[in-house]
Design a protein around this nucleic acid. Structure first.
Lengths: 333, 333
DNA sequence: GTGAAAGCGCTAACAT
DNA sequence: ATGTTAGCGCTTTCAC
């Protein structure tokens, strides 16, 4: 364990050449005589020289690193996004650095600030205001954002939540459901789209929609709100949740309360998290292509970095994934 | 969107003072006359100056950032570790940077190398060889490792997997199970401990243990291996899985095959992931304190960074979390 | 209190 | 093919 790491200078001196030579050679910017190259190589190996990336980045202005800010690393939707982005980044020779912004929403801007200085670009999922987003834009780094902004104009990606909501509602109506409620999470940027789609569909069938609002998109909130939703007079025959986590919690509690799913109440969510398949009954969900969103975000980032043109606003298609919680039939293979 | 960010120099010039003054003031290293301070403040606000952390870090040698390498961000165990570490880091004024090493095990060393150059310390969860770990140690950054190493001497943390295994086995024996198998994941550093604990307990009861090995610690592997385990002659009456994910997959498939859990076969796992509570039947698990591990790792890192003494090797106590998959009774509140 | 000047470790013209 | 020389933006003695 070295205390003072060897510098380019040390290598140059030991190899009897100039720092410029060592620098160029090590960066593959230029070839040198075999003798020189060999000497440099051996010296590097000998003294265990490793370039100081900080100094290097300072000059080149490049870190070969992309920052990804996610809301909650415990949420499978976000981890899937990260997985997708990571894969693309690695293939392109970039490293992904993540920060989890949930634990400290107050410091989110500061966190992004810190992150932005260490990376070449930022991929952000956030609930912050458009004003704050403007601040982030002013950090001056290429930016890819999840979700559509009203005022700010930037590269962004989203899933067609409205269509997803419509699909889900249509499916439930087809199953004979008449009294459908939406268990939402209004703090999220996506909530509005989803409920709008559901509402639009129901309206077209002459049905009305009642909505509840969760404080957090967690299973525990689904559990908490279940009795409120199910133990009033004429309980709903279907519940569409803002996400799968809420739905999973809701299902558990509903079953504890003695309801049969989907017989007494059908339940569905959004995100198609892996666990949707493993709960009982398995959960019908709208696949929003979480991983695909991550991949796409990273691809757009690479476009931005390379100065290639990239579509400003991309919408991914949702897909209904039918399972037992709304069908009662054997789920599709 | 600024192209060239303003520098300390710009601030100094605009404020009519020297760069040294601005630097010292902004870092709170020294007080100046009210007039000067006010001018600097207003100039900074005006031109939107932000310190270049790269340049700063280059000199101070500090980044106020800790790198965390995790095996798979999709695994709830690891995300919990991250959550715990993140909380402690933020409270101490540090930022956490994560990398997911799964996608590219071949490049893991390189990834850690890249990461190590940008952070003050490294917290690592890895399956790499002790030789490779030596290389990481030579990066010269403070290091906290999850898991005990045989040769390398470094600050590390682990859960008492052996005790956890013993507890689980004892519990199943108490429930009357006689034919217990272990569905392991031998590539993991923890697998050996867990099976050892299980084996030790069974041996003390004159029972033998059969073991299977998964290729990955995922639910899909649990599903895949289920028929192999359950459809031979005299199937086991209890299956202890390396982790909850395997157990969840196994349970789903076992139920598809017509087995009742825990009546026909009891199932248990390790990690106590959030979803263990939401599957049916709910899954008995050994709580390894994932979040606590993350917190502790970060605390040790802070000790290291501050030059405080810290226990070299810490073992966290496991706790059996009893649920329906092994008890048949109503689960504990 | 305030500033001049010397670097941190590296890259990038521009020589030679 | 190799070296010289400026910095990058910042901190930090050490003067005044």
């Amino acid at each position: 364990m070295k205390r003072n790491a060897p510098t380019l200078h040390d290598v140059a001196k030991a190899a009897g050449v100039s720092t410029a030579t060592v620098s160029k050679f090590l960066n593959g910017a230029q070839r040198f005589s075999p003798a020189v190259e060999a000497t440099i190589n051996s010296v590097v190996a000998q003294i265990g020289y490793r370039s100081n990336e900080l100094a290097r980045s300072m000059i080149t202005g490049e870190t070969k690193t992309i920052g990804v800010a996610i809301l909650d690393i415990n949420n499978p939707h976000f981890t899937a996004v990260v997985k997708g982005a990571n894969r693309v980044a690695i293939d392109a020779g970039y490293t992904l650095l993540f920060v989890d912004t949930e634990e400290n929403q107050k410091r989110e801007l500061q966190l992004l600030d810190t992150l932005s200085r260490r990376v070449d670009g930022l991929i952000i999922s956030s609930r912050m205001s458009e004003t704050d987003i403007k601040t982030v834009i002013d950090f001056g780094k290429p930016l890819v954002f999840f979700g559509q902004l009203e005022t700010a104009k930037l590269v962004s990606i989203c899933s067609a939540g409205q269509q997803g909501g419509y699909m889900l509602a249509q499916h439930l109506v087809n199953q004979g459901c008449k009294n459908i409620v939406y268990l939402g999470f209004s703090k999220s940027r996506w909530d509005r789209d989803r409920i709008a789609g559901v509402g639009e569909c129901l309206e077209s069938h002459g049905l009305s929609l009642k909505a509840y609002d969760a404080q957090a998109p967690f299973a525990s909130e689904g559990e908490r709100l279940c009795s409120l939703i199910m133990l009033g007079k004429d309980h709903p025959d279907a519940v569409i949740c803002y996400n799968d986590l809420l739905a999973i919690g809701f299902m558990k509690e509903a079953q504890s309360l003695g309801f049969k799913i989907p017989h007494d109440v059908a339940v569905a969510g959004f995100d198609n998290v892996p666990y949707a398949e493993y709960v009982s009954p398995s959960l019908t969900s709208v696949n929003l292509q979480s991983e695909g969103m991550g991949e796409l975000a990273m691809k757009k980032m690479l476009d931005l970095l390379a100065g290639r043109p990239t579509e400003e606003y991309t919408v991914l298609d949702p897909q209904l994934v039918l399972r037992e919680s709304t069908s009662g039939r054997k789920r599709h293979a």
